[in-house]
């Protein structure tokens, strides 16, 4: 296992301290995260690995402000979101964070061009030239006026990546972005993704099961039973 890269505290883009999270189930509460500490610097990329149920996705969701922790401190780009309300966390997602999911989660009612522009326009950072560059780099120029349901899985994931990067987020959070694609397509999409993330200078935290993919990032964080192993 490669060592976890610990960033200089003054340059932290994402910082988690003693983060705990549990979910209520029919059989009582289940602790998913049991005190996680981690840091990520701008431009740094980190793979989040671990067996199923180890809390990878939960950690990613907390970092994105999609959910709130039971305990601990989460700081994103200098903002402590641990106690932040719904509106503040929504503002953070809109302006600072970019999310890429395994399920693509495109907006089915908008065409590819509108999907690509959507988050950038929400963040108030829409740059048509950069979007065109991205569309070209992702091989989407020919299908800008198609709707998500008319695309293949690989194409849909490329649109999802393009949508995230078009907004130039400072922090990119990805949850197994190529998990739904075959190996060859997944490798091609991942290569593009990493190249473009590094081009924007964003920090990247990516959940993956693949050791091979994890090896292509700056560092790796292994979760086990809700703790950093």
């Amino acid at each position: 296992m490669r060592t976890v890269l610990v960033s200089d505290p003054s340059e932290r883009l994402l910082s988690l301290e003693g983060v705990r999270k549990s979910y209520a189930t029919g059989e009582g509460p289940v602790q998913v995260l049991a005190g996680v500490d981690m840091n990520l610097a701008p431009g740094e990329s980190l793979a989040l690995t671990g067996e199923s149920g180890s809390g990878k996705s939960t950690l990613l969701h907390l970092a994105a402000g999609l959910d709130s922790a039971d305990e601990g401190r989460i700081v994103v780009a200098g903002h402590d979101i641990s106690q932040a309300g719904d509106t503040e966390r929504a503002r953070l997602r809109r302006g600072t964070v970019g999310l890429v999911f395994q399920q693509f989660n495109l907006i089915p009612s908008l065409d590819v061009a509108a999907n690509l522009a959507f988050q950038a326009r929400l963040a108030g950072r829409h740059d048509p030239e950069w979007q065109a560059e991205l569309a070209d780099a992702l091989g989407l120029t020919a299908c800008l006026h198609r709707y998500p349901e008319q695309l293949s899985g690989g194409q849909q994931q490329r649109v999802a990546i393009g949508r995230t990067l078009a907004a130039r987020p400072r922090l990119v959070l990805a949850d197994e972005p190529t998990g739904n694609l075959d190996e060859a397509t997944g490798d091609a999409v991942m290569a593009l993704f990493l190249r473009l993330v590094s081009q924007t200078g964003a920090g990247l935290l990516m959940v993956t099961h693949s050791t091979r993919l994890a090896g292509r990032l700056h560092g790796r964080l292994q979760l086990s039973a809700g703790r950093v192993a």
């Binding site: 503002r91 953070l92 997602r93 989660n105 988050q119």
Partner: peptide
């Protein structure tokens, strides 16, 4: 939900 969740994730509050 599958249509609203991505928009929520991208920064629109549930209230909105």
């Amino acid at each position: 939900l599958p249509q609203l969740a991505p928009v929520w994730a991208m920064g629109l509050t549930k209230a909105r």
